[in-house]
Design a protein around this nucleic acid. Structure first.
Lengths: 216, 216
DNA sequence: GTCTATAGAGTGATAGAC
DNA sequence: GTCTATCACTCTATAGAC
Protein backbone atom coordinates (compact mmCIF):
# COMPACT_ATOMS: atom_id res chain seq x y z
CA UNK A 1 0.00 0.00 0.00
CA UNK A 2 0.98 3.62 -0.46
CA UNK A 3 1.99 4.71 2.98
CA UNK A 4 5.42 6.13 3.44
CA UNK A 5 6.74 8.02 6.43
CA UNK A 6 10.00 9.80 7.06
CA UNK A 7 11.49 8.27 10.12
CA UNK A 8 15.19 8.98 9.65
CA UNK A 9 16.80 12.11 10.99
CA UNK A 10 19.65 12.12 8.51
CA UNK A 11 19.80 10.75 4.98
CA UNK A 12 23.14 9.05 5.51
CA UNK A 13 23.46 5.31 5.03
CA UNK A 14 23.03 3.65 8.37
CA UNK A 15 26.24 2.94 10.21
CA UNK A 16 26.72 -0.08 12.37
CA UNK A 17 26.17 1.76 15.65
CA UNK A 18 23.17 3.61 14.29
CA UNK A 19 21.55 0.40 13.09
CA UNK A 20 22.04 -1.29 16.43
CA UNK A 21 20.80 1.61 18.52
CA UNK A 22 17.78 2.20 16.32
CA UNK A 23 16.69 -1.39 16.68
CA UNK A 24 17.15 -1.25 20.45
CA UNK A 25 15.03 1.91 20.60
CA UNK A 26 12.35 0.46 18.32
CA UNK A 27 12.01 -2.64 20.49
CA UNK A 28 11.72 -0.54 23.64
CA UNK A 29 9.23 1.79 21.98
CA UNK A 30 7.10 -1.15 20.84
CA UNK A 31 6.72 -2.32 24.43
CA UNK A 32 5.89 1.11 25.81
CA UNK A 33 3.45 2.06 23.03
CA UNK A 34 1.68 -1.28 23.37
CA UNK A 35 1.27 -0.75 27.09
CA UNK A 36 -0.04 2.81 27.05
CA UNK A 37 -0.88 3.95 23.53
CA UNK A 38 0.71 6.85 21.68
CA UNK A 39 -0.05 9.64 24.14
CA UNK A 40 0.27 7.41 27.17
CA UNK A 41 3.80 6.27 26.44
CA UNK A 42 6.58 8.66 27.42
CA UNK A 43 9.95 9.23 25.74
CA UNK A 44 11.45 9.01 29.20
CA UNK A 45 10.17 5.47 29.79
CA UNK A 46 11.24 4.40 26.32
CA UNK A 47 14.73 5.78 26.93
CA UNK A 48 14.96 4.03 30.28
CA UNK A 49 13.84 0.71 28.81
CA UNK A 50 16.34 1.11 25.97
CA UNK A 51 19.01 2.02 28.54
CA UNK A 52 19.90 5.14 26.59
CA UNK A 53 19.73 8.85 27.42
CA UNK A 54 16.54 10.54 26.31
CA UNK A 55 18.40 12.91 24.00
CA UNK A 56 19.87 9.93 22.19
CA UNK A 57 16.42 8.91 20.99
CA UNK A 58 15.83 12.39 19.62
CA UNK A 59 19.10 12.06 17.75
CA UNK A 60 17.95 8.91 15.95
CA UNK A 61 14.30 9.82 15.48
CA UNK A 62 12.87 13.17 14.51
CA UNK A 63 10.29 13.26 17.30
CA UNK A 64 7.83 11.11 19.22
CA UNK A 65 5.47 10.78 16.26
CA UNK A 66 8.34 9.80 13.97
CA UNK A 67 9.33 7.03 16.36
CA UNK A 68 5.73 5.88 16.63
CA UNK A 69 5.29 5.76 12.88
CA UNK A 70 8.54 3.83 12.52
CA UNK A 71 7.11 1.22 14.88
CA UNK A 72 3.72 1.16 13.17
CA UNK A 73 4.92 1.01 9.55
CA UNK A 74 6.49 -2.39 10.15
CA UNK A 75 3.15 -3.69 11.36
CA UNK A 76 1.17 -2.36 8.42
CA UNK A 77 3.39 -4.02 5.86
CA UNK A 78 2.73 -7.36 7.51
CA UNK A 79 -0.99 -6.69 7.64
CA UNK A 80 -1.63 -5.92 4.00
CA UNK A 81 0.46 -8.74 2.66
CA UNK A 82 -1.72 -11.42 4.23
CA UNK A 83 -4.83 -10.70 2.16
CA UNK A 84 -2.99 -9.71 -1.01
CA UNK A 85 -1.80 -13.21 -1.76
CA UNK A 86 -5.32 -14.55 -2.36
CA UNK A 87 -6.70 -14.93 -5.93
CA UNK A 88 -10.05 -16.22 -7.32
CA UNK A 89 -8.35 -19.28 -8.81
CA UNK A 90 -7.23 -20.48 -5.40
CA UNK A 91 -9.11 -23.17 -3.55
CA UNK A 92 -11.17 -21.44 -0.83
CA UNK A 93 -10.73 -24.26 1.64
CA UNK A 94 -6.96 -24.27 1.33
CA UNK A 95 -6.59 -20.51 1.29
CA UNK A 96 -8.91 -19.66 4.17
CA UNK A 97 -7.70 -22.36 6.53
CA UNK A 98 -4.16 -21.19 5.81
CA UNK A 99 -5.17 -17.58 6.36
CA UNK A 100 -6.77 -18.26 9.72
CA UNK A 101 -3.81 -20.31 10.92
CA UNK A 102 -1.35 -17.69 9.76
CA UNK A 103 -3.16 -14.78 11.41
CA UNK A 104 -3.51 -16.59 14.71
CA UNK A 105 0.17 -17.49 14.60
CA UNK A 106 0.93 -13.84 13.99
CA UNK A 107 -1.19 -12.86 16.98
CA UNK A 108 0.71 -15.35 19.09
CA UNK A 109 4.16 -14.28 17.90
CA UNK A 110 3.64 -10.52 17.56
CA UNK A 111 1.10 -9.54 20.19
CA UNK A 112 2.67 -6.12 20.72
CA UNK A 113 2.44 -5.19 17.05
CA UNK A 114 -1.20 -6.25 16.93
CA UNK A 115 -2.01 -4.26 20.04
CA UNK A 116 -0.38 -1.06 18.88
CA UNK A 117 -2.32 -1.26 15.64
CA UNK A 118 -5.51 -2.00 17.55
CA UNK A 119 -4.92 0.83 20.01
CA UNK A 120 -4.46 3.22 17.11
CA UNK A 121 -7.70 2.08 15.44
CA UNK A 122 -9.76 2.05 18.63
CA UNK A 123 -8.80 5.67 19.22
CA UNK A 124 -9.94 6.65 15.75
CA UNK A 125 -6.59 6.23 14.00
CA UNK A 126 -5.52 9.88 14.47
CA UNK A 127 -2.01 9.13 13.21
CA UNK A 128 -3.03 6.96 10.25
CA UNK A 129 -5.42 9.19 8.39
CA UNK A 130 -3.47 8.89 5.12
CA UNK A 131 -3.42 5.10 5.31
CA UNK A 132 -7.23 4.96 5.35
CA UNK A 133 -7.66 7.20 2.33
CA UNK A 134 -9.61 6.53 -0.83
CA UNK A 135 -7.24 3.89 -2.14
CA UNK A 136 -7.89 1.78 0.94
CA UNK A 137 -11.49 1.45 -0.15
CA UNK A 138 -10.37 0.50 -3.67
CA UNK A 139 -7.89 -2.03 -2.35
CA UNK A 140 -10.56 -3.57 -0.12
CA UNK A 141 -13.06 -3.72 -2.98
CA UNK A 142 -10.48 -5.64 -4.99
CA UNK A 143 -10.13 -8.14 -2.17
CA UNK A 144 -13.88 -8.68 -1.85
CA UNK A 145 -14.01 -9.49 -5.58
CA UNK A 146 -12.14 -12.70 -4.88
CA UNK A 147 -14.80 -13.89 -2.49
CA UNK A 148 -17.55 -12.72 -4.81
CA UNK A 149 -16.03 -14.77 -7.62
CA UNK A 150 -16.04 -17.80 -5.35
CA UNK A 151 -19.69 -17.18 -4.57
CA UNK A 152 -20.56 -17.08 -8.27
CA UNK A 153 -18.75 -20.35 -8.75
CA UNK A 154 -20.91 -21.79 -5.99
CA UNK A 155 -17.92 -22.32 -3.73
CA UNK A 156 -19.34 -20.08 -0.99
CA UNK A 157 -22.88 -19.66 0.37
CA UNK A 158 -24.76 -16.76 -1.22
CA UNK A 159 -25.92 -15.65 2.23
CA UNK A 160 -22.34 -14.64 3.09
CA UNK A 161 -21.49 -11.01 2.33
CA UNK A 162 -17.79 -10.97 1.35
CA UNK A 163 -17.12 -7.69 3.17
CA UNK A 164 -18.39 -9.03 6.46
CA UNK A 165 -16.63 -12.34 6.01
CA UNK A 166 -13.34 -10.46 5.77
CA UNK A 167 -14.21 -8.47 8.90
CA UNK A 168 -14.96 -11.76 10.64
CA UNK A 169 -11.60 -13.20 9.59
CA UNK A 170 -9.84 -10.11 10.92
CA UNK A 171 -11.70 -9.76 14.19
CA UNK A 172 -11.71 -13.39 15.26
CA UNK A 173 -7.99 -13.86 14.72
CA UNK A 174 -6.68 -10.52 16.00
CA UNK A 175 -8.75 -11.00 19.13
CA UNK A 176 -6.20 -13.42 20.56
CA UNK A 177 -3.54 -10.71 20.61
CA UNK A 178 -5.62 -7.63 21.34
CA UNK A 179 -7.77 -9.03 24.15
CA UNK A 180 -5.18 -11.44 25.53
CA UNK A 181 -5.74 -10.19 29.09
CA UNK A 182 -9.42 -11.10 29.01
CA UNK A 183 -8.76 -14.45 27.34
CA UNK A 184 -6.10 -15.43 29.85
CA UNK A 185 -8.34 -14.41 32.74
CA UNK A 186 -11.28 -16.35 31.29
CA UNK A 187 -9.22 -19.49 30.78
CA UNK A 188 -7.47 -18.99 34.13
CA UNK A 189 -3.99 -19.15 32.61
CA UNK A 190 -0.87 -17.03 33.02
CA UNK A 191 0.05 -17.48 29.37
CA UNK A 192 -1.56 -19.19 26.40
CA UNK A 193 0.32 -22.25 25.17
CA UNK A 194 0.56 -23.98 21.79
CA UNK A 195 -2.43 -26.17 22.57
CA UNK A 196 -4.62 -23.11 23.18
CA UNK A 197 -3.67 -21.54 19.87
CA UNK A 198 -4.15 -24.87 18.08
CA UNK A 199 -7.56 -25.17 19.69
CA UNK A 200 -8.46 -21.65 18.62
CA UNK A 201 -7.30 -22.30 15.06
CA UNK A 202 -9.23 -25.57 14.81
CA UNK A 203 -12.46 -24.14 16.18
CA UNK A 204 -12.33 -20.99 14.06
CA UNK A 205 -11.47 -22.95 10.93
CA UNK A 206 -14.29 -25.42 11.53
CA UNK A 207 -16.93 -22.78 12.17
CA UNK A 208 -15.97 -20.32 9.46
CA UNK A 209 -15.40 -22.81 6.64
CA UNK A 210 -18.45 -24.89 7.43
CA UNK A 211 -20.45 -21.74 8.06
CA UNK A 212 -19.59 -20.43 4.60
CA UNK A 213 -20.49 -23.74 3.00
CA UNK A 214 -16.91 -24.33 1.89
CA UNK A 215 -16.14 -28.01 1.49
CA UNK A 216 -12.86 -29.81 1.12
CA UNK B 1 -20.07 -9.53 38.98
CA UNK B 2 -18.20 -8.39 42.05
CA UNK B 3 -16.63 -5.15 40.98
CA UNK B 4 -17.41 -2.11 42.99
CA UNK B 5 -15.64 1.24 42.86
CA UNK B 6 -15.97 4.36 44.93
CA UNK B 7 -16.74 7.13 42.53
CA UNK B 8 -18.50 9.61 44.73
CA UNK B 9 -16.67 12.31 46.61
CA UNK B 10 -19.30 12.71 49.29
CA UNK B 11 -21.76 10.19 50.67
CA UNK B 12 -24.67 12.58 50.58
CA UNK B 13 -27.73 11.73 48.55
CA UNK B 14 -27.36 13.26 45.13
CA UNK B 15 -29.02 16.64 44.74
CA UNK B 16 -30.61 17.77 41.54
CA UNK B 17 -27.65 19.94 40.49
CA UNK B 18 -25.17 17.27 41.38
CA UNK B 19 -27.00 14.64 39.38
CA UNK B 20 -27.20 16.84 36.34
CA UNK B 21 -23.57 17.96 36.43
CA UNK B 22 -22.28 14.45 37.02
CA UNK B 23 -24.08 13.15 34.00
CA UNK B 24 -22.78 16.02 31.87
CA UNK B 25 -19.24 15.27 33.03
CA UNK B 26 -19.63 11.54 32.47
CA UNK B 27 -20.80 12.08 28.92
CA UNK B 28 -17.91 14.42 28.17
CA UNK B 29 -15.44 12.03 29.79
CA UNK B 30 -16.76 9.13 27.75
CA UNK B 31 -15.99 10.97 24.53
CA UNK B 32 -12.51 12.04 25.59
CA UNK B 33 -11.50 8.65 27.03
CA UNK B 34 -12.74 6.89 23.90
CA UNK B 35 -10.67 9.20 21.72
CA UNK B 36 -7.38 8.99 23.57
CA UNK B 37 -7.45 6.29 26.24
CA UNK B 38 -7.02 6.82 29.97
CA UNK B 39 -3.62 8.50 29.96
CA UNK B 40 -4.19 10.28 26.69
CA UNK B 41 -7.35 12.08 27.77
CA UNK B 42 -6.89 15.21 29.89
CA UNK B 43 -9.09 16.62 32.61
CA UNK B 44 -8.76 19.95 30.86
CA UNK B 45 -10.31 18.67 27.65
CA UNK B 46 -13.05 16.90 29.57
CA UNK B 47 -13.85 20.11 31.45
CA UNK B 48 -13.93 22.13 28.26
CA UNK B 49 -16.23 19.63 26.56
CA UNK B 50 -18.50 19.62 29.61
CA UNK B 51 -18.38 23.43 29.64
CA UNK B 52 -17.41 23.44 33.29
CA UNK B 53 -14.33 24.68 35.15
CA UNK B 54 -11.70 22.04 35.69
CA UNK B 55 -11.95 22.28 39.48
CA UNK B 56 -15.63 21.52 39.25
CA UNK B 57 -14.85 18.04 37.97
CA UNK B 58 -12.56 17.43 40.91
CA UNK B 59 -15.38 18.43 43.16
CA UNK B 60 -17.70 15.77 41.78
CA UNK B 61 -15.14 13.02 41.23
CA UNK B 62 -12.28 12.05 43.53
CA UNK B 63 -9.65 12.12 40.80
CA UNK B 64 -9.03 11.18 37.17
CA UNK B 65 -9.05 7.45 37.90
CA UNK B 66 -12.29 7.77 39.83
CA UNK B 67 -13.92 9.48 36.88
CA UNK B 68 -12.57 6.84 34.53
CA UNK B 69 -13.88 4.01 36.68
CA UNK B 70 -17.26 5.68 36.91
CA UNK B 71 -17.40 5.66 33.12
CA UNK B 72 -16.16 2.10 32.83
CA UNK B 73 -18.37 0.53 35.50
CA UNK B 74 -21.46 1.38 33.48
CA UNK B 75 -20.02 -0.49 30.53
CA UNK B 76 -19.09 -3.59 32.49
CA UNK B 77 -22.55 -4.04 33.89
CA UNK B 78 -23.92 -4.12 30.36
CA UNK B 79 -21.26 -6.56 29.24
CA UNK B 80 -21.77 -9.28 31.80
CA UNK B 81 -25.53 -9.29 31.59
CA UNK B 82 -25.56 -10.37 27.96
CA UNK B 83 -24.10 -13.83 28.53
CA UNK B 84 -25.69 -14.42 31.92
CA UNK B 85 -29.18 -14.83 30.53
CA UNK B 86 -28.35 -18.05 28.65
CA UNK B 87 -29.22 -21.47 30.13
CA UNK B 88 -28.75 -25.06 28.86
CA UNK B 89 -32.50 -25.50 28.41
CA UNK B 90 -32.68 -22.70 25.89
CA UNK B 91 -32.78 -23.39 22.20
CA UNK B 92 -29.27 -22.68 20.83
CA UNK B 93 -30.57 -21.32 17.55
CA UNK B 94 -32.87 -18.82 19.21
CA UNK B 95 -30.43 -17.77 21.89
CA UNK B 96 -27.34 -17.35 19.73
CA UNK B 97 -29.03 -15.49 16.90
CA UNK B 98 -30.53 -13.19 19.52
CA UNK B 99 -27.16 -12.77 21.18
CA UNK B 100 -25.39 -11.83 17.96
CA UNK B 101 -28.09 -9.35 16.99
CA UNK B 102 -28.09 -7.81 20.45
CA UNK B 103 -24.33 -7.38 20.64
CA UNK B 104 -24.12 -5.80 17.19
CA UNK B 105 -26.94 -3.45 18.09
CA UNK B 106 -25.02 -2.53 21.23
CA UNK B 107 -21.90 -1.86 19.13
CA UNK B 108 -23.95 0.39 16.89
CA UNK B 109 -25.64 2.27 19.71
CA UNK B 110 -22.79 2.46 22.23
CA UNK B 111 -19.59 2.63 20.19
CA UNK B 112 -17.82 4.81 22.77
CA UNK B 113 -18.46 2.40 25.61
CA UNK B 114 -17.16 -0.49 23.55
CA UNK B 115 -14.04 1.42 22.58
CA UNK B 116 -13.15 2.50 26.11
CA UNK B 117 -13.46 -1.10 27.27
CA UNK B 118 -11.38 -2.26 24.29
CA UNK B 119 -8.75 0.42 24.86
CA UNK B 120 -8.43 -0.67 28.46
CA UNK B 121 -8.02 -4.34 27.50
CA UNK B 122 -5.61 -3.71 24.65
CA UNK B 123 -3.33 -1.85 27.05
CA UNK B 124 -3.34 -4.78 29.43
CA UNK B 125 -6.26 -3.65 31.61
CA UNK B 126 -4.08 -1.80 34.15
CA UNK B 127 -7.17 -0.31 35.83
CA UNK B 128 -9.27 -3.46 35.87
CA UNK B 129 -7.04 -5.95 37.60
CA UNK B 130 -9.67 -6.78 40.24
CA UNK B 131 -12.34 -7.42 37.63
CA UNK B 132 -10.23 -10.14 36.01
CA UNK B 133 -9.58 -11.97 39.23
CA UNK B 134 -10.18 -15.61 40.05
CA UNK B 135 -13.95 -15.37 40.05
CA UNK B 136 -13.87 -14.20 36.44
CA UNK B 137 -12.46 -17.59 35.50
CA UNK B 138 -15.17 -19.30 37.53
CA UNK B 139 -17.91 -17.19 35.97
CA UNK B 140 -16.56 -17.94 32.50
CA UNK B 141 -16.37 -21.69 33.24
CA UNK B 142 -20.02 -21.58 34.23
CA UNK B 143 -20.91 -19.98 30.92
CA UNK B 144 -18.99 -22.57 28.89
CA UNK B 145 -20.96 -25.32 30.67
CA UNK B 146 -24.06 -24.21 28.84
CA UNK B 147 -22.42 -24.77 25.47
CA UNK B 148 -20.91 -28.04 26.65
CA UNK B 149 -24.36 -29.25 27.64
CA UNK B 150 -25.65 -28.39 24.19
CA UNK B 151 -22.77 -30.35 22.66
CA UNK B 152 -23.66 -33.41 24.74
CA UNK B 153 -27.25 -33.14 23.57
CA UNK B 154 -25.93 -33.14 20.00
CA UNK B 155 -27.12 -29.61 19.40
CA UNK B 156 -23.62 -28.33 18.62
CA UNK B 157 -20.73 -29.87 16.65
CA UNK B 158 -18.21 -31.65 18.84
CA UNK B 159 -15.39 -29.93 16.93
CA UNK B 160 -16.40 -26.62 18.47
CA UNK B 161 -14.60 -25.73 21.71
CA UNK B 162 -17.09 -23.73 23.81
CA UNK B 163 -14.42 -21.33 25.11
CA UNK B 164 -13.36 -20.33 21.63
CA UNK B 165 -16.91 -20.09 20.40
CA UNK B 166 -17.57 -17.50 23.09
CA UNK B 167 -14.42 -15.60 22.09
CA UNK B 168 -15.65 -15.68 18.50
CA UNK B 169 -19.03 -14.27 19.51
CA UNK B 170 -17.33 -11.47 21.43
CA UNK B 171 -14.71 -10.55 18.85
CA UNK B 172 -16.87 -10.63 15.76
CA UNK B 173 -19.58 -8.42 17.24
CA UNK B 174 -17.43 -5.93 19.17
CA UNK B 175 -15.35 -5.43 16.06
CA UNK B 176 -17.99 -3.16 14.55
CA UNK B 177 -17.55 -0.65 17.35
CA UNK B 178 -13.86 -1.01 18.12
CA UNK B 179 -12.52 -0.97 14.57
CA UNK B 180 -15.19 1.29 13.10
CA UNK B 181 -12.58 3.54 11.47
CA UNK B 182 -11.15 0.67 9.46
CA UNK B 183 -14.58 -0.68 8.56
CA UNK B 184 -15.84 2.69 7.36
CA UNK B 185 -12.66 3.22 5.31
CA UNK B 186 -12.93 -0.25 3.81
CA UNK B 187 -16.57 0.21 2.84
CA UNK B 188 -15.92 3.78 1.72
CA UNK B 189 -18.64 5.24 3.97
CA UNK B 190 -18.75 8.18 6.34
CA UNK B 191 -21.05 6.31 8.70
CA UNK B 192 -22.51 2.81 8.83
CA UNK B 193 -26.27 2.67 8.29
CA UNK B 194 -28.97 0.24 9.37
CA UNK B 195 -28.50 -1.85 6.24
CA UNK B 196 -24.81 -2.35 7.04
CA UNK B 197 -25.55 -3.54 10.55
CA UNK B 198 -28.36 -5.79 9.29
CA UNK B 199 -25.97 -7.23 6.74
CA UNK B 200 -23.34 -7.81 9.40
CA UNK B 201 -25.87 -9.50 11.67
CA UNK B 202 -27.18 -11.74 8.90
CA UNK B 203 -23.76 -12.83 7.71
CA UNK B 204 -22.42 -13.48 11.21
CA UNK B 205 -25.55 -15.37 12.23
CA UNK B 206 -25.46 -17.52 9.12
CA UNK B 207 -21.77 -18.40 9.42
CA UNK B 208 -21.64 -19.01 13.16
CA UNK B 209 -24.85 -21.01 13.51
CA UNK B 210 -24.28 -23.13 10.42
CA UNK B 211 -20.60 -23.44 11.35
CA UNK B 212 -21.53 -24.85 14.75
CA UNK B 213 -24.00 -27.26 13.19
CA UNK B 214 -26.93 -25.57 14.91
CA UNK B 215 -30.17 -26.06 13.00
CA UNK B 216 -33.48 -24.36 13.31
C1' DG C 1 -21.56 24.89 45.74
C1' DT C 2 -18.55 27.35 42.44
C1' DC C 3 -14.43 28.88 40.31
C1' DT C 4 -9.79 31.44 40.02
C1' DA C 5 -5.21 30.96 40.67
C1' DT C 6 -1.44 28.19 41.33
C1' DA C 7 1.41 24.47 43.14
C1' DG C 8 4.25 20.56 41.88
C1' DA C 9 5.31 16.84 38.97
C1' DG C 10 6.07 15.28 34.42
C1' DT C 11 6.13 16.05 29.32
C1' DG C 12 8.67 16.55 24.57
C1' DA C 13 12.39 18.72 22.83
C1' DT C 14 17.06 21.09 22.30
C1' DA C 15 21.49 23.64 23.11
C1' DG C 16 25.97 22.91 23.74
C1' DA C 17 29.94 20.70 26.26
C1' DC C 18 32.47 16.53 25.59
C1' DG D 1 28.24 10.40 18.04
C1' DT D 2 27.01 10.96 22.96
C1' DC D 3 24.89 12.86 26.95
C1' DT D 4 24.04 16.53 30.69
C1' DA D 5 21.46 20.31 31.77
C1' DT D 6 17.63 22.92 30.91
C1' DC D 7 13.64 25.21 28.56
C1' DA D 8 8.86 25.81 27.69
C1' DC D 9 4.86 23.65 28.23
C1' DT D 10 1.04 20.59 29.97
C1' DC D 11 -0.62 17.64 33.27
C1' DT D 12 -3.40 16.50 37.72
C1' DA D 13 -4.81 18.29 41.77
C1' DT D 14 -5.87 21.64 45.48
C1' DA D 15 -6.12 25.89 48.42
C1' DG D 16 -8.90 29.46 49.32
C1' DA D 17 -11.78 33.58 47.82
C1' DC D 18 -16.51 34.18 46.60
Amino acid sequence: MLFKIDTETTSRPAGRIRQKNESIILRAAEIEFAAAGFKGASMNDIAQRAQLPKANIHYYFKNKLGLYMAVISDIIALWDSTLNAITPDDDPYEVLSHYIARKIRFSAENPLASRIFASELVNGAPNMKEYFREDYNLWFKGRTEVFRAWAEQGKIDAAVTPEHLIFLLWSSTQHYADFAVQIKAALGKEELDDADYQNATDTLTHIILKGCGITK
